[in-house]
Design a protein around this nucleic acid. Structure first.
Lengths: 125, 125
DNA sequence: ACTACATTTGCAATACTGTTGCATTAATAA
DNA sequence: TTATTAATGCAACAGTATTGCAAATGTAGT
């Protein structure tokens, strides 16, 4: 595995995602960053951060991929937590304490999980 | 609500999805249909079938939207079932009997659910 | 602090994905 | 068979994403 470098783009994008309460899409990140770097770099930084396991992907029912960083993962990691997508304010948030229970037939090998629930969030109802 | 018509495109697309074991993406449907109709029509037919509740959407972690029809929904509908995405053969299948249990904080109103698990399916392992 | 070097970035080119307006076609009901 | 209205096909457009390559930059070693 190759070394990874702390570039300005990487630092800023990670800061943005870490300080955000909600999961951010590529376009949201792009407009926040303005001209710090171009959109190609954003794609590549997000891929790198995901590959390194520092952030995780969330996919909404509309197919928009967003990125988030758990805030309490330092204590205990909840890799399978649910994400909530509000139909009104269009924010996607991690519900890090909600971990669904399910049983797959034995022969399935699970690597990754994507649980998204859409509806109305507390602030909009 | 307006009336819906049984056009050739609609019939063929629904047949395709119904007879398929796996969830199909727009591009998969397009290449199966060849020149039956153009891609714009496919988009619109899929939207209509989804709106009418005849088929349902599945979103993979890569953001690709696929469409599927439950085969045992006539007996009992399982709207919240899990979908499995195989990383090797890239098929997405409905696990209609696997319905996960989860508890959201009271203030969240749930309308829709998207549960996808990726890994290796039985035929690939 | 300087240098070497591999990683990362920026840009160009390209392809895929998805939406909308409008004229035409075709499915349905009478 | 005809009238009506949904559905289609086409054009135009916009957003999303990938890749190759040269230039820039971060990092380790000196």
């Amino acid at each position: 595995m190759k070394n990874t470098r702390n570039t300005r783009a990487r630092t800023e994008i990670l800061n943005l995602i870490t300080s955000s309460e909600e999961a951010l899409s590529h376009s949201q990140i792009q407009s926040s960053l303005k001209d710090l770097c171009d959109r190609f770099t954003i794609y590549r930084v997000l891929d790198r951060l995901t590959y390194e396991g520092i952030i995780h992907k969330v996919v909404n029912i509309d197919g928009v991929i967003r990125y988030a960083k758990c805030h309490n993962c330092d204590e205990k990691h909840h890799p399978d937590h649910i994400h909530f997508s509000c139909e009104q304010c269009h924010t996607v948030t991690c519900l890090e304490d909600v971990e669904p229970q399910f049983k797959l037939p034995k022969k399935y090998k699970v690597h990754e999980v994507n649980f998204t629930v859409s509806g109305i969030c507390p602030s909009c109802s």
